[in-house]
Write a protein that binds this DNA or RNA. Structure first.
Lengths: 294, 294
DNA sequence: CGTCATCCATACATTTTTGTATAGCCAGTC
DNA sequence: GACTGGCTATACAAAAATGTATGGATGACG
């Protein structure tokens, strides 16, 4: 334990990894290129591994370096979290909070909630990150998050909001053009906008619905926002959160019997309970999302 | 992004936090005491926060410093993971792997599995950590783990082993002395060895069993191993994993109708799929635990 | 009440790290 | 084929960090 690597070298290593060359990394960190070269050299000596193959066009990361990348990124996430929370004062509600939410929630639901939160807590700067990986919270990429799965980590402070209902929607002009489907089996002849099967909560949610196949979609996107925009533009039929459709009634519901529940949780790292700014945002999110659901 | 804190200062900060004084931290890191003093000073300047109140008896951490501690610990966990995995070669099955398991599994089940794993992969050094927090995996305190809850993190690679049955057991000498209980309600008059309610999977597991209260236990311990040892020593009646009792038949089952299922999963960080040593241990655990259950 | 051990802060010499400048190498491009 | 712009590696001076030594202050202990 007495001869560990200089943590600063990890930082330089990550910069080189991201920038692809010593020179670029040096610029990004505000250091000199030989310094970065030495850092990498020392790190390689300390780890006993070759991290880059040098070439006059830049440095190419070896497999070993690529394998180590997530760990260094995790280090940086923690370091950034430290900077955020150090500036936050412990007595007044102020500081910077990183909020991770899914795309649709972030774009459609958050703005209103954050606007009123801003008025209530003008001292808090919110960094909104569109991402849906629960991992972020534990890696400290985000402080507070809105998630679609129940967290099992004990370290996380979680509050269940309820189930957001998902329904099928289309633009009235599309239905006028194509007529309305009468039953689920009719959907095959319509233009369906597809969700991304990769997301695990969607896999779970649609577990009981055999008829959905990737092939039947006329438009697929890994972005739920793109899907929503397509439906709104009259492309075809797709899923939309029911509360969203009610709030802005530009879409017409199709086959109301089709309904998927989407669990919704507000989650925060337990460590942050004592950070007034995080706690305040957490509470504001719970309140805002509850009223969104109602 | 150009004026970030020197990561090395975080390392010094953590050492001071843990050791309680600059001098002790300096000894622990192999540095001089003034160096640590400067590091802390620079970090305080960079963060704009007072981290310690100086006194001739040592440094006392402020609330701000305490709040930042988990973040720095997370950084160190990542740094240590880097060191571990850098030494691991990518082609041969060798290196160091940290394995996190619960107490009982670690003490009663792992030795046999690890012994045969050792023969199969002599190049792999296993660090066995007794801990049950899933968080460890994401914080990279552990590379592979055996867990009692289904992981929901997408970043984790998980393999379900099955349900370990828990039953009530007692030493034959105890039953001889006190007679055997006939029904669950009889238990109140026996000496019960209690499990720790704090563990969430136990809360979940015993959700359907109202009669268990903390007060009825004659001996409670947050260590499941202590409970098991007490039961084996003839203290009274307590829970034991059925496969364990079968393997070493020193205990007699009581009220066989009482049975709790304990889910068992082998979990690994997805990043480590390409690390031969981690993968090999993962596979060995799956195989070993499956045969433990059978 | 003095002794001793422990702690932090400071001053100064030394070592280490860093930056500047330069040379050399490769890939486009005119 | 020379030119330009990107890169790394090396040499050397400047700057920064470190270690040593010392002073002062506190608490434990006989």
């Amino acid at each position: 334990m007495d001869d560990e690597t200089d943590w600063q070298h990890y930082r330089s290593f990550l910069a080189v990894l991201e920038e692809g060359s010593l020179s670029a990394a040096a610029r990004s960190l505000g250091l000199a290129q030989p310094t970065l070269g030495r850092h990498v050299q020392l790190l390689e000596a300390a780890l006993g591994t070759t991290l880059f193959t040098r070439s006059p066009t830049g440095l190419a990361a070896t497999d070993a370096a690529k394998a180590l990348r997530p760990f260094v990124e995790s280090m940086r996430a923690s370091a950034q979290a430290i900077d955020r929370h150090a500036h936050a004062s412990r007595d007044t509600v102020a500081g910077t909070v990183r909020l991770g939410v899914s795309e649709v929630i972030g774009i459609e639901v958050m703005p209103a909630i954050l606007a009123s939160f801003r008025q209530a807590c003008p001292g808090v700067v919110v960094e909104l990150v569109l991402s849906d990986r629960n991992q972020d919270l534990l890696q400290r990429d985000a402080d507070v998050a809105v998630r679609m799965v129940a967290p099992v980590q004990e370290a996380l402070l979680a509050r269940r909001i309820g189930a957001i209902e998902l329904g099928l929607y289309a633009h009235p002009s599309y239905l006028e053009r194509r007529g309305e489907p009468r039953q689920v089996s009719d959907l095959a002849s319509y233009d369906l906008v597809g969700f991304d099967e990769a997301l695990p909560y969607i896999r779970r949610m649609s577990a009981g619905m055999p008829p959905w196949h990737r092939d039947m979609f006329a438009l697929r996107s890994n972005s739920n926002v793109v899907q929503l925009a397509a439906v709104r533009a009259g492309f075809g039929i797709g899923f939309c959160q029911v509360p969203l459709a009610i709030r802005e009634p530009v879409l017409a519901r199709v086959l109301p019997s089709v309904s998927l529940p989407l669990e919704c949780w507000v989650v925060m790292h337990g460590d942050l309970r004592s950070q007034p700014a995080c706690k305040a945002l957490f509470d504001a999110l719970v309140e805002g999302l509850l009223s969104y659901l109602a």
